[in-house]
Design a protein around this nucleic acid. Sequence first.
RNA 1: CGGGGUUUAGCUAAGUUUGGUAUAGCGCUACUUUCGGGAAGUAGAGGCCGUGGGUUCAAAUCCCGCAACUCCGACCA
Length: 475
Amino acid sequence: MAKKLVEAITSMEEDFAQWYTDVVKKAELMDYSSVKGCMIFKPDGYALWENIQSELDKRFKETGVRNVYMPMFIPESLLQLEKDHVEGFAPEVAWVTKGGLNDLQEKLCVRPTSETLFCDYYKNAVESYRDLPQVLNQWCSVVRWEKETRPFLRSREFLWQEGHTAHATAQEAEERTQQMLNVYADFCEDYLAMPVIRGKKTEKEKFAGAEATYTIEALMHDGKALQSGTSHNFGDGFAKAFGIQYTDKENKLQYVHQTSWGMTTRLIGAVIMVHGDDSGLVLPPKLAPTQVMIIPVMQKKEGVLEKAAWLKDVLSNYRVKVDDSDKSPGWKFSECEMRGIPVRVEIGPKDIEAGCAVIVRRDTREKIQVSLDEINEKVGQVLENMQREMLERAREHRDAHTSVADTYEEFKEAVANKPGFIKAMWCEDEACEIKIKEETTATARCMPFAQEQLSKQCVCCSRPAKKMVYWGKAY
RNA sequence: CGGGGUUUAGCUAAGUUUGGUAUAGCGCUACUUUCGGGAAGUAGAGGCCGUGGGUUCAAAUCCCGCAACUCCGACCA
C-alpha cells in the first residue's frame, strides 16, 4: 500500500467513516445542500453518474429495453392497491398535500419507486398477448424520507434507473429477472472493477410486494457488505392487484407476470469504498471521466505548455486533460490522486530534451519513463492493466475477507473479529435469521446461486440445513 | 426515531469556564520570484459568531427553543 501523502484525508485504518466523508469532499464529488438529507452532485460526481448511466443504458438496450418517463407523483389510492408494497414504503414516503394555496382533493406521494405507476399504465396498454412483453425503463430520481443519511449511500432523494417489465408467462418473467441481474453483475465487474456475489434474498429481506428478489452484493474495504443492485420477480401479484390482464391465443383472459430492477447512485459510494485508498479516490479507467491528466513541469519555460498541448493531442483517444493552472506540480500530483484520475503524465524540460515523459499509475503509483514515440500505446496498456488488476485486487480482498462458520460459536467469533462475508448453512427458518441478526447484527446478504454444501446443519439451530447463505454487516 | 458530538471568514480552528473593540493558519485577489511530491515575499479583500427568543448598560460567551451536519443504533437502495 502506497504511503499517505495527503494529510487532509483521515486514514482508513483510523476511522473508515471519516475517511469516506473526507474522500467524497476532497475528490469534489458532492456538497451538502440546505435541504436535509439531499446532496449536491458536483461536476466530478455527476460525471461518474453520467458514465454509469450511459454504459448501463447501452447494455439495457442490447437486451431490448426501451426508456420512458413516468410522473413523479403517485395518488394515494394508487399507491395503496398492493398491500405488501404500501406497507413496505409507507413509513418513508413524502406527501404533497397542497397545490398552490389550496388543499388537494387527494394527496400525492412523491414516488419512492414507480411499480404502481407502471402497473396503472400496463392496465390499459396491455390487452392482447401481442402487446407483450413490455420491457420499459426510466431514469429518474426518487424520494424516500430516510432518518439517517450519508453521501451517495443513503440520501432522501437519489438518482436511479428502474426497469419494469410485463410478460405473458411466469417463466419469461423469471428469465428477465435473472437476465437483468446478470447485466448488473457484469457491469459491476467489467466496468466498475467491482466483484459481486449473485444470489437470492431471503423472504425477510426481499422487496415489498415481490415474489422473489435477486441481488448482487459487494464487499467494501472495511468488510461491510453493500447491496449494489436488485432484480425482482413479482409473479402475478401486482397484476391481480391492478387488474392487468391480456387475452391469450386461446382467447382466454390471463394475468401478466412482472419484474422490476434498479441500480442507483449508491454505486458511486461502492466504487469509493472498494477502490479508494488513503490518498483519496481511485477510479477504474473505464469509469473515470478523466483518464489521463497531463501535468506540465516548469510550465513557464518556453515550449513546455506547447509540448503538453501536443501530448494531449497525441493521447486524444483517451479522455485526457492538461492541468495548466499555476499551482506547483506537487499540488497537482496530490490533486490528481485525491480525484482518482487513473494516469498522470508528467512532462518538463528534462523530458522534452530526452524525448520522453513520465507516466504514473494511480493505484500502484508506479512511475514509468516512456519515449514520446510510444506513449500512446503505453498509456493504453497501463489503463488496461489497471482496470484488470483493480478487479483482481478487489476479488482477492473479498476472498481474504470471506470466512466459513460451521457452528454458532464460530459464527459469532467471525462477526466479532473477522470483518467480511461469512458463509454458513441455514435451515430457512426466519426465526434463526432474526435470532442471528439480534445477537450478532449480521444479516443474510443473499443465498448465492453458487451453492456449496458446507455442512448438514443450520449454523444457528442445528436442524437440517437447506441453504448456504452469505452473512455480513451491511450498509 | 433513540443516544453522543459539532456549528465562529471559502476551509480548519482559538476565543465561551470568568459577558466588555471578533482572532489565527490555510485558501482567495494583485504583483514579483518560483516549479520533477501540497513553494516564498509584499500588499489587499473577506464575519448578523447556525437560527429564533430571553437575561443584561453590554452576549460568540449566560438561559430556553429550533435547525443543520456528523457518528453509533433501529429502518432502508
